[in-house]
Nucleic acid binder design. Structure first.
Length: 218
DNA sequence: GTCCAGGGCCTAC
DNA sequence: GTAGGCCATGGA
């Protein structure tokens, strides 16, 4: 049986309930987290964010002000710290110079225009741009990640090697364009993946019929 | 010791 | 246009 996207959402919501993503105190913090979490465990990101907060650098001005080398030291626990320090600097420069220092301005305008503007910033790829738009800007841009591709290809809904934009388009054309739903759906996918898709061997009580649950790698 | 985590850029073919 | 290498920490 092939499950539809709405049915999968309904099952995940029934299983895990409202998750209330993203775990951050402000839209700016969401953006910082989106960059820091690239290919990195969230636990390590939290440590880096705690360092930034303690150093009073968890703000646009804070990151503009601090030297890149010092920034790298603070975010060290998140890994790739030299790369990510540069990316954070590039991002705040974009907000300061191209958006008049306003995150609201960065997220204002036609959806795909906002997205393509973000994608021009070095270090912001599709997933990071969509995460920022959805979780910091409350814009209905669906976030696809490795978990999404893994689960939905295992369920037989898409090819394993489907491209990012193709998978994003599938969700966005199949679901009501609602930031609240997109927010929940992505959060539910991540929650499900963390609990089930890494289970070895097959986990039990999988609300998607165990199909997606057989180790983290195919 | 090995694998993996809520990616993205750059270089070679 | 795309596959492969690189960036790097910390927990399982």
């Amino acid at each position: 049986m092939i499950l539809r996207l709405e049915e999968i959402y309904s099952r995940l919501l029934g299983r895990y309930g409202c998750l209330g993503w993203w775990p951050a105190d402000s839209p700016f913090e969401v953006c910082v987290g989106a960059i820091l979490t690239q290919n990195t465990n969230w636990i390590n990101v939290e440590k880096a964010i705690a360092n930034l907060r303690q150093a009073d650098c968890l703000s646009l001005d804070g990151i503009l002000r601090i030297a890149e080398g010092q920034l790298a030291v603070l975010i060290r626990p998140a890994g790739y710290f030299n790369v990510k320090a540069r990316r954070l600097k590039d991002f705040v420069s974009f907000i300061e110079n191209d958006c008049a220092g306003s995150l609201d301005a960065a997220f204002s305008g036609e959806l795909e225009v906002v997205r393509s503007r973000l994608l021009k910033v070095k270090g912001i790829g599709p997933e990071t741009a969509d995460s920022m738009m959805l979780y910091a800007g409350q814009r209905p841009s669906f976030v696809v990640d490795a978990y999404t591709r893994r689960i939905f290809s295992r369920l037989g809904l898409v090819p394993e090697n489907i491209g990012y934009d193709d998978l994003r388009n599938l969700f966005m054309s199949s679901l009501e364009s609602d930031a609240g739903i997109f927010n929940q759906y992505h959060a539910l996918i991540v929650e499900h993946a963390k609990r089930h898709c890494k289970a070895k061997p097959l986990c039990d009580k999988c609300c998607l019929g165990n199909v997606c649950c057989f180790g983290s790698k195919l």
